[in-house]
């Protein structure tokens, strides 16, 4: 495992921890899109179907369990927790799941590396992960005051994607036959979705003003 891949996993982990920290300690999910969190739970469920049958390393298995567990825990907090659910911004979080899930599933049926069930689900998870952040970005745009933890959550997620691209470039040059078009293109699309956010995030940081995305 190279440094980019490891740093990418760690920033991914950081994003989840920042979100759980916000929800658990402040007991608030203000500015967090439940739609995006539910899509991530579905992404991990579809991708880690091989968790018991395909052992790669203890590191992989533990990380998979963390991402699966945390994504369902976050959804539970927002939907069910007595206090947390009151801060959920239902009026502004209106993105429809099906608009993202259905096209991704159809695309996975049409474009995949092998048409086995687990392979299609894995491909579906890649496509869905690429667009799962959209409801969150839309919600951020509609939110007047983005708090620091929410901003950091999205920043860490974007950093994770950028580092994975560095990881693929590194692996392409160091490993023979390492070519994965589906992974790369969906990963690139996903990272580009953060470009706009990053622009405003760094500007607010540089000018020391509160983060706000233009409508």
């Amino acid at each position: 495992m190279n440094i980019f891949r490891f740093s990418g996993d760690m920033t991914h982990l950081m994003s989840v921890l920042v979100l759980l920290l916000k929800i658990h300690t402040i007991k608030s999910c203000a500015g967090i899109s439940l739609k995006t969190q539910e899509l991530y739970a579905l992404v991990f469920l579809a991708r880690y179907l091989d968790i018991v049958t395909n052992f790669i390393s203890l590191y992989n298995t533990i990380m998979k369990l963390i991402f699966l567990g945390s994504s369902f825990m976050i959804v539970w907090y927002i939907r069910r927790h007595r206090i947390v659910r009151r801060s959920y911004d239902k009026e502004h979080d209106t993105f429809r799941h099906l608009f993202l899930v259905l096209p991704c599933f159809i695309l996975a049926l049409l474009i995949n590396e092998r048409s086995a069930f687990k392979e299609i689900m894995w491909t579906f998870s890649l496509y869905l992960e690429a667009v799962a952040i959209l409801p969150q970005l839309v919600l951020l745009q509609r939110t007047k005051n983005i708090d620091n933890l929410t901003g950091q959550y999205v920043f860490f997620l974007g950093a994770y994607r950028a580092l994975y691209i560095c990881n693929w470039i590194y692996r392409y040059f160091t490993e023979p036959h390492y070519v994965h078009w589906i992974t790369w293109i969906s990963g690139l699309v996903q990272t580009l979705l953060y470009a706009d956010f990053f622009y405003y995030y760094f500007n607010s940081w540089k000018n020391n003003v509160k983060l706000q995305l233009p409508a």
Binding site: R5, D50, I56, S57, N60, N167, Y178, T183
Partner: peptide, 10 residues
């Protein structure tokens, strides 16, 4: 294509 290689990322 080695499927183990394909699935070693998270």
């Amino acid at each position: 294509l080695n499927s183990g290689q394909l699935h070693d990322e998270l």
